[in-house]
Design a protein around this nucleic acid. Structure first.
Lengths: 215, 215
DNA sequence: TAGATTGTTAATCGATTAACAATC
DNA sequence: TAGATTGTTAATCGATTAACAATC
């Protein structure tokens, strides 16, 4: 089992070497990836082990091959479907950002309790009423849910998504969701992050600030 | 020096016990906080050590006292000022969320390159043009910056903020910022988080899923 | 070849958990 | 008192880094 930290870094590595590929580069050394991502070269080499991709001591890693190997781990060979619940400012920001960006990880439906949004297309995605949530999630085979709803609604929505087959949640609501053990939850809590930044801005970033505090 | 993880959990503990206080409760046990936050009771007790607040074996922790002790660590005795750069959907979502919520941590200015936004009040915060960034940050004494700008603009904006005295950045742009060692950066990378959730949704949440993956 | 980089193990580091005497 | 909880140390656990033979 690959750790969540390694998965996050592989995603980051893929992004930076994709940019290199766009500049027509063909090979890259671990220390270059390391510098671009704010980690150590040893970390990069170790993270790349589970991908099975081998570099060469003389030329480093072949970029297209490495992208393919990382994608072999990160991407579903089929297609993974995502639904987003809550189409406020935050929900729309996420919809706008993902507009046709990842072919293997697509947002297929949006949900909102606000009747004025239901039935409309928002950034190319159809918006349904929350009462249709379970039906649509089941029919589409959605596996991942993004929660951008108010805190008070989050647990009920999470329960419904999970009941309809969702096994991963990206939760922006400032509450600790209770979920069965087979469901993976990642919390992106902006308020907590901001308090942390404020604390370390005041108290000094600290020696350990080589490391990226990536959340 | 308290670790970033501990700071994040203290912020979470304060939130949940504040909710208890609102329900007129006066005392709380470590295992109650632990359950509400998805951590172990031992973790809670250990995290509370640096606050200096002492509980009682018979009644647990006094809630108002504990809130005060946690706030003594998390909050600046003065006031800490925050600026947000980039008033798109994401920026507005954050402005709306923080509207008058934290007296000790206030967003005092917003900036955007879009001339049509400049001069307006957005969720109660004045929006300036980016060319005024350094001046306003210096004059207001802003210490923390939130970056909700496109990736290509992030490094230049970060440099300018830091040049004007900012020592902490909450970065939503999908780039690894290069900053001097005294500056604390926390990255909230939605794309990476979503890929991580997708991966663990597919591969099983794993045994280690007791722990909250809080970012 | 000489020199830099790779894959991979062993050592280190830091954070979490278990344990338990002291306490109410 | 008896029983549960506290503060705190020691043991455990996992992740990062250092090191180095193998390789190009």
């Amino acid at each position: 089992m690959i750790s969540d930290k390694t998965i996050g870094r592989l995603s980051l590595y893929r992004r930076v070497i994709s940019e290199m590929l766009a500049e027509a580069r063909t090979h890259v050394y671990s220390h270059e990836i390391a510098k671009a991502c704010g980690v150590t070269p040893a970390q990069v080499r170790r993270d790349l082990m589970p991908t099975g991709h081998l570099g060469s001591p003389s030329r480093g890693y072949n970029i297209p091959g490495l992208i393919q190997s990382i994608s072999g781990i990160l991407d579903d060979p089929e297609q993974e479907k995502v639904a987003i619940v809550g189409v406020g400012n935050l929900g729309r920001a996420i919809l706008a950002y993902f507009m046709g960006r990842r072919p293997n990880l697509t947002i297929v439906a949006a949900f909102d309790a606000d009747a004025s949004k239901v039935g409309r297309m928002i950034h190319g995605i159809r918006c349904y009423g929350t009462e249709q949530l379970a039906d649509v999630v089941r029919k589409e085979g959605v596996e991942v849910g993004i929660l951008t709803v108010p805190a008070r609604a989050a647990q009920a929505i999470a329960d419904e998504l999970i009941g309809a087959g969702v096994r991963g949640l990206l939760n922006f609501a400032p509450v600790a969701l209770r979920v069965p053990p087979h469901v993976y939850v990642e919390d992106l809590d902006v308020a907590i992050s901001l308090e942390r930044v404020a604390y370390f801005a005041r108290h000094g970033a600290g020696t350990r600030r080589q490391e990226r505090a990536m959340r």
